[in-house]
Design a protein around this nucleic acid. Structure first.
Lengths: 343, 343
DNA sequence: TTGAAAGCGGTACCAC
DNA sequence: GTGGTACCGCTTTCAA
């Protein structure tokens, strides 16, 4: 049943039926009621295809997942963030359009989206330093919101980010207070802005404690378990191994844990591991070691907030660029482990 | 630049330009080349809004995530499965439409999708026993493919599923061979078909070994870390505790691990834990215990295959319903742990 | 081989 | 308050 058929059934014009259904004020109340009932009775649903052609709006929000960044994405963004955003989208009549795209097409896809007119706005994930997608989206006049930030970008843009720098700084300070002096950082790919900020927090805390950074204790790569295992193991096999690790993600921390246990070392006694993750908060904590992780609910809330801001933007309800920096809901504990043995 | 403008520039009709661009044979080769070049030069991109209204196809595939099943979804489906499906979609010009929906709207959303015409097909996740969505989608004539199976459904439908029953049966047999007699099952919600199959595999292995199932060793709930922790702990505190656990997901296994360690028990010596997960394969394995888990790559492949089948279905290239049951790529090892101590 | 014109199913301007 | 009608931008029949 389409609009024409419905209007014929009612003996009204398409115009009137359309207006009645969309809440225009000039329709008389009795007509509106009659139309609503008929629409309900005939199970009328307007075609979104037609509506979007006529109005230019698709009620879709684009999320682009570059193929190369899959590992990062899977860790950082997917699941809770998307679930949170999806809830808000649903409440506002939007749906999420997810496209996995090979890196070569990364630039073109935004131009396509604009020209095709398949989305009303875009949510940008995992920006890199001076991310080129931001000026691109800006010039395309496609409303967008960045989850994270891109240092070095002069184009004004709205973003929402967790305070990555402070989170890792606190983690480092925490380990320093426990007496650790050789603290390793297993970071995500430092082409991503969040990883740069995390490193900065790590370095800041060390500097404040008058400890020189040791590059043999700093590694950066895809945030996977195998990398945590490999890098962690190599560091432990060094002449002067670390007594504590800060992992940039949960799965990395699992890898480190495996490396530790394989060498007959005891987590929390010989080596401490701390991790920060936007996504999963389940760091196994039976043994005597610190936990340091953002909560799932915090990420979901971030997804919700991003969605709200983006929708406001699409509806032109945002007068100027908005920026929100969140403190991660960090958890430390329950037991923090002893100081490292003197070496 | 739209079709009309392009055709004016070329001094051709919209018809010819459209045909040239869409590879219709009746266009002369020189015209086609000329049109292609002009389209390229003017950066012409056809509006998907208009195309989909005209053709009735949207090049979108719907995935529905019920709000209540979020936890399950996040574990089972999201990430690798979606990434795999997304790759295939992209290769074929499709995109994924993800909608998070409250449970009350679960039925209506499919009717909406059909009437709205926003998707060309639907991928169904986490079916329950006798899932009502299957006859619904069938009657709506909306092409769909089920990831998983729904026992008790008489409507014919295409599905792709991992062999959940055999996977858990093998896990159980494995623990039995190690000498375990009190093996606990922490299952997902048994309203889901996969959970029913897993339980069946567990019971089958016990029965074959002439061991009576003990309901105090069987629990079913959302597959979260807290549930694994709680249920695992309660079982361990029983007068006659289990010597081994089979967890239906990775995060559940982490919860069990926490419960074990909190009680001063040693993983792999006092208690063994085995888990099966479609998603994450990072069961920490430093200590002496069995690992039993499906691989990430296997799930990604499943996503790809599902997408392929669904696209074939949408394009009417599938003569009859297709069913594929996959053996999970299971990993056992590296060390299997000793037999439980006599009690 | 090319073109004119009628859809697809709505929205919104302009009359009445 | 209601209706006629010209779009939105592409596909597709039918005629030339």
């Amino acid at each position: 049943m389409n609009l024409r058929q419905l209007s014929e059934v009612l003996g009204l014009s398409q115009t009137t039926v359309s207006r009645a259904l969309n809440g225009y004020p000039e329709v008389s109340e009795k007509t509106r009621v009659r139309v609503r009932e008929a629409a309900e009775r005939h199970n009328y649903r307007p075609s979104l295809r037609a509506t979007s052609l006529a109005t230019g709006r698709t009620m879709m929000i684009g999320h682009v997942i570059p193929l190369s960044a899959r590992e990062e994405m899977v860790n950082i963004i997917f699941t809770d963030f998307l679930a949170g955003a999806g809830e808000i989208y649903a409440q506002n009549g939007y749906a999420m359009r997810l496209s996995v795209v090979s890196d070569a097409d990364e630039v073109e896809i935004y131009e396509d989206m604009k020209a095709n007119g398949v989305v009303d706005g875009v949510l940008l994930h995992a920006p890199s330093e001076n991310d080129q997608r931001i000026p691109l989206l800006d010039s395309l006049k496609l409303p967008f919101l960045v989850h994270g930030r891109a240092t070095g970008t002069e184009t004004p843009y709205s973003w929402l980010d967790v305070n990555n720098r402070r989170a890792i700084q606190r983690a480092t300070e925490h380990l320093l207070e426990l007496g650790h002096r050789r603290i390793a950082l297993l970071n995500g790919l430092e082409s991503y802005d969040f990883a740069i900020r995390r490193r900065s927090g790590y370095l800041g805390a060390l500097e404040a404690a008058w400890i020189a950074a040791d590059t043999s204790l700093m590694r950066s790569n895809e945030m996977t378990e195998p990398f945590g295992y490999k890098a962690g193991g190599e560091m432990l096999d060094q002449p002067n191994p670390p007594t504590a690790f800060i992992a940039s993600s949960f799965v990395m921390a699992l890898g480190v844990r495996r490396a530790i246990e394989e060498r007959g070392l005891i987590m929390g006694r010989d080596v401490s591991v701390v991790c920060f993750d936007d996504d999963i908060s389940y760091l196994p904590n039976g043994s005597d070691k610190p936990i340091f992780t953002a909560l799932k609910s915090s990420v979901r809330a971030a997804g919700r907030r991003c969605a709200e801001l983006l929708i406001a933007k699409i509806n032109d309800e945002m007068p100027e660029e908005q920026h929100e920096q969140w403190e991660a809901e960090l958890v430390i504990g329950p037991s923090t482990g002893p100081a490292p043995s003197e070496s």
